[in-house]
Each structure stands twice: as C-alpha cells, then as structure tokens.
Amino acid sequence: MLGNLINQGRIKSPWVVHFDCGSCNGCDIEVLACLTPLYDIERFGILNIGNPKHADVLLVTGTVNQRNKHVLKNIYDQMPTPKAVIAIGACGCSGGVFREAYNVVGGVDKVIPVDVYVPGCPARPEAIIDGVVAALEKVKKLLGMTA
C-alpha cells in the first residue's frame, strides 16, 4: 500500500539530475532551457535537483572521457533504484563528432547502462522532454505498473 503510493509519486514527479560529461555545452543549455518558462518541464512534475542521491533520472550530455568516466560511474552508483539514464545528444549516444579524438572513450553506454537515447546535435528541448517521458515508461514497467 505504502510502496504503491511511493511508486505513484515517483512516476508523477520524477526528479532529474543533470551531469555534463564532456559535452560542448550545446546540450547542457538545452537541458537548462527545458526548465525555463517556454518549455517549463515542471508542468510534468519534473524537477531538476543538484544531488544524485535524491534523483530518479540521470540526464547525461556529452562524450565520456578517461577522467570523467569515474565521476559518471560514481554519480550513477549514488542514485537510488529504480533509476533511469538518458543519454542526450549525438555525443552522449555514440561519441558524435569527437569519437575519433584521443581522450574520448565513446558514448555514455560504454560506462553505465542507458535506457533512452535522445539524438540531435544539440538535442532540442522538446526531444529531451520526450526522452524523460519515455524513460518513465521504462521505470513503470520495472515497477510492474503497466496500467
């Protein structure tokens, strides 16, 4: 009963944490633009939060490099389950234009499991909101809430 209530809350108001993992800023500012009046992601109950320990969804922008892969793994491990990871932008999905650079490991999925890929260079705010909604469907399934 209580568990059900908590799960309802998770789905209705997911908290997201954003980590910039070596992106060019293009996708970061689009993630931030989602929060601002024109796109206003908060109308879906989605709240951007600074602490990974409070978050349900991890938004990762940009390629993974040799140094920040440890940070990314660390943030992912700190998040409570159930959690969803969204890779944003061409770089987050596959490495994008930087895939041949010497310090680049590749897409986010080289380090942590990714649930949703949002393409685009940079991804549009609408696409990012879509991605979060798609990720929530996955979390729903994980919780056995396919209604």
């Binding site: 993992c21 490099n65 140094r67 920040n68 940070v71 930087f98 041949e100 650079a101 010497y102 680049v104």
Partner: peptide, 24 residues
C-alpha cells in the same frame, strides 16, 4: 573532465570539415 583533444582532430578531418569540429 571535459578534455576531448579536438585540436588533434585536424589530422583526420580536412580543413573544411574542421569548421564543424571547432563549432563544437
């Protein structure tokens, strides 16, 4: 944490393609 080494990409991309790299 964000170092990609894209100055080095001038060896694999030609001078026109580098525009797309430096934009990023």
């Amino acid at each position: 944490y964000v170092h990609r080494g894209l100055e080095k990409l001038c060896e694999v991309r030609d001078f026109n393609q580098m525009i797309q790299i430096v934009e990023r």
